[in-house]
Design a protein around this nucleic acid. Structure first.
Length: 770
DNA sequence: AGTGAACGGTTTTTT
DNA sequence: ACCGTTCACT
């Protein structure tokens, strides 16, 4: 035990060894959050305050869950497989598989990913003759998901007008269709579990009694349904509820747009009467100037629980700030700096280039490619999302649950087997008429269409029969052949990659089977306490004995069902270029939780970062500021920030002001690499300026060129791209000039004060020498 | 059934 | 500018 706790600082120690009560740990960036969480679990078990099955640890991502498991097994001499550590969705899947009857689901229910969900909604709209101009599929999907994230069913949603009433109606139709097909979407996993436990008292009480300690990671990212789910499992309001140990950082809440509610932190504090609020403010990651920047910036936010990071590391180097003339030139500068870093011995994987939106990566990628610097862009397509892999998965889905219409439609004519639109329409008519799945409706289709559809059904049935006795990897292999997918891609010109991906699926299945313990007999991995608990009789509402969800996966679902869940819940890696020491490029969002020696934060312009759409939303700018806070705190040693006077966006040149966030950083921590005062310049991307970074020495001659252009341009001395100052609106950039002579009017981007059109003859504008 | 033109959307993302 | 999706045509 001494081993476990040594090297913890005072606050970490206090958090780890708290008594069995509700607690809120405010864990700043780089303060050892994961360490506290895992050490707490290990400590609870080692001091025998709880047995492994009494622990429930919840994360948002599979990566975080895996990390926790890895660290725990390093700390504890027990097999961690018996412990309940996973994502919200993974744990719900497990509960629903075990209690599928009580949850009114087929045993082989399947999980729709977002793609499947959207295509299902499109089908639904078409089948009901809904105008998809008035009801865009994506909007309908958001409506449904938002409602479910709030814990609401169609019958709970209040509609205020005809449009909303239709939305609610579609919501209901969608849920009915899902139920018929035996499929659930991501939000449904949570909601269905929540409803199951709310309604089923014996089950609820069983799990409430079992989970003595519930630990939640990234608590600031929970949505309302997840919060209520936790409340329910922790037995909030009951006499003997479990202890909820929530770890989070309100300053790193950057997912409000997908339903996360930071308010859950203070709600938790009040509703659970949290007496133990511990702040982890000691930062082990970043140097002083970086941390000072983060602290001063985030102090501009009003709704905070209050936290200030400190470090023992020295000030380190100042943050380097660079103003580029164009996005191309910004990229050039990044590459020069990166080369220097590498020359000084930095490893490429310790250099991260962050941006607000994916569209910004293109220019930088291009520059990196030209400079022959290896790089890796995060956020690409994931393995199980690739079209060819989804096709193969669809065959497997149909074998396990033929009523999954999404899977049916995906592959009924892929590879082509002469089943066209007309056949499908006949089939859909039959399926609607009898209220059954497409698969079940096949016998009702007559004629040629019926014959070819029958052939497809026989193919599926045949493969299912053939593979009954086979292991999962063997089954996958047979499916790849029998579906003629491999053959199809062999005939395709660019099919080699796809074939490779399909072949990889056999490997993925092999790995899955061995990791999840399929194929072995009894679960010897459960500790004695777990076995005692698992042996306890749990009764459902009909008084029938049921399994505890602690039963090993093979007892709960077939290898195939489990593998299909896995494919939906863990979309797989986004093809990392393995082993390659490469620069890391990603959005600020995907950088959360990561750290690098050297970080570039790029595109720091009004409208981009903070993003323009954020100013329209309530608290939007504060969320952008938190995003900036996350970006800054990724850096250990060296931090670069850059912005550009012009940028190509959606095919148009934009003139942006530098981000307001620069005004919120400590001046003494910043080092401006480009001079603050610069020459006027003409906003032509093809100008010689863009080719080479400016130097102070060149300012004079550039200014002369600019003056020359100015005289020729309309509007009498004012030019597009020119920086100006206005008494009321402050600094701005001229974006456009209309008319000429005395009537010229200029459209000026005043950054956070908005876009204004001013009459150049009337408005008192001052030229800014930059 | 497969190809190319036209169209629309374009902040962030996990499960 | 650039992507995916849809539609019309061969």
């Amino acid at each position: 035990m001494a081993n476990l706790l040594h090297n913890l600082n005072t606050e970490q120690y206090a958090a780890v060894t708290l008594p069995a009560q509700n607690a809120l740990i405010l864990a700043g960036a780089g303060s050892g959050k994961t360490r506290v969480l895992t050490t707490r679990i290990a400590w609870l078990i080692q001091t025998q305050q709880v047995s492994p099955p009494g622990i429930l640890a919840v994360t948002f991502t599979n990566k975080a869950a895996k990390e926790m498991l890895t660290r725990l097994s390093a700390m504890l001499p027990i097999n961690t497989r018996g412990m309940w550590i996973g994502t919200f969705h993974g744990l719900c899947n497990r509960l629903l598989r075990t209690h599928y009857r009580d949850a009114a689901l087929p045993q082989t229910f399947q999980i729709l990913d977002s793609q499947d969900q959207l295509s299902m909604i499109k089908r639904l709209l078409k089948a009901n003759n809904i105008d998809d101009e008035k009801f865009p599929p994506k909007t309908v999907m958001y409506f449904i998901n938002n409602a479910k994230d709030q814990g609401l069913r169609a019958t709970d949603v209040e509609a205020h007008d005809a449009h909303e009433r239709k939305m609610v109606e579609l919501f209901q139709l969608y849920d009915d269709q899902c139920q018929r097909e035996g499929v659930v979407d991501f939000a449904e996993l949570l909601l269905r579990t929540y409803e199951l436990l709310s309604r089923n008292q014996p089950l609820r009480e069983h799990y409430q009694a079992r989970f003595r300690h519930i630990l939640v990671d990234e608590f600031q990212d929970t949505n309302n349904l997840q919060y209520n789910w936790l409340k329910l499992l922790a037995g909030h309001g009951t006499r003997d509820g479990g202890a909820l140990f929530a770890v989070g950082d309100d300053d790193q809440s950057i997912y409000a747009f997908r339903g996360a509610n930071v308010g859950n932190m203070s709600a938790f504090e009040h509703e659970f009467q949290v007496k133990n609020l511990i702040k982890l403010e000691q930062n082990y990651r970043s140097h002083g100037h970086i941390l000072d920047s983060a602290n001063l910036l985030i102090a501009n936010n009003s709704k905070r629980l209050g936290k200030n990071l400190r470090t023992d590391a020295g000030h380190g180097e100042q943050v380097r700030v660079y103003e580029a003339s164009s996005d191309l030139q910004e990229a050039q500068w990044i590459i020069e700096e990166a080369k220097t870093l590498i020359a000084e011995g930095a490893s490429r994987s310790e250099i991260a280039i962050l941006y607000r939106s994916n569209a910004q990566s293109r220019v930088i990628e291009h520059a990196l490619f030209s400079a022959a610097i290896p790089y890796h862009v995060y956020g690409g397509q994931r393995y199980f999302q690739r079209a060819e892999v989804k096709h193969a998965i669809a065959y497997l889905q149909l074998m396990d649950n033929p009523h999954n219409d999404s899977a049916f439609l995906r592959v009924v004519n892929f590879p082509t087997r002469g089943i066209g639109m007309r056949s499908i329409e006949q089939l859909q008519a039959a399926s609607e008429q009898y209220g059954i799945s497409l698969y079940a409706a096949v016998p009702y289709v007559t004629g040629k269409a019926g014959t070819s559809l029958g052939g497809f059904v026989r193919l599926i049935e045949g493969v299912r029969f053939e593979t009954q006795q086979l292991s999962l990897p063997e089954m996958v292999r047979v499916v790849l052949e029998a579906s003629t997918l491999l053959q199809h891609y062999q005939n395709e010109k660019e099919g080699a990659d796809r074939i490779e991906n399909l072949e990889q699926m056999v490997g993925a299945a092999t790995q899955f089977v061995s990791e999840e313990g399929f194929g072995q007999a009894a679960p010897a991995h459960l500790g004695p306490a777990a076995q005692a608990q698992a042996g306890e009789a749990v009764l459902n509402q009909d008084g029938i004995e049921i399994l505890d969800a602690d039963a090993p996966l093979p007892a709960v679902m077939s290898p195939l069902s489990a593998f299909l869940s896995h494919a939906s819940l863990e979309a797989g890696d986004n093809q990392a270029q393995a082993g390659q020491d490469a620069l890391q490029m990603m959005t600020v969002h995907s950088a959360k939780g990561l750290e690098f020696d050297n970080v570039f934060i790029t595109g720091l312009e009004e409208g981009l970062f903070p993003h323009e759409s954020s100013s329209k939303e309530d608290g939007g700018v504060e969320e952008e500021r938190r995003l900036m806070y996350v970006a800054i705190t990724r850096a250990r040693k060296r931090l670069y920030m850059s912005f550009s006077q012009t940028r190509m966006l959606h095919g148009q040149t934009r003139y942006n002001m530098k981000s307001r966030f620069f005004d919120e950083l400590p001046e003494e921590s910043l080092k401006w690499l480009s001079p603050k005062v610069q020459a006027n310049w003409f906003g032509n991307r093809k100008s010689a300026w863009d080719e080479a970074p400016r130097t102070v020495g060149s300012l004079g001659s550039d200014n002369a060129i600019a003056q020359k252009i100015a005289q020729k341009s309309p509007g009498g001395g004012w030019r597009i791209g020119e920086s100006v100052a206005h008494a009321k609106f402050g600094e701005g950039v001229i974006v456009n000039i209309e008319g000429g002579g005395g009537n010229a009017r200029a459209q000026i981007n005043f950054g956070q004060h908005g876009m204004k059109v001013l009459d150049l003859g009337i408005a008192k504008l001052e030229k800014l020498g930059r």
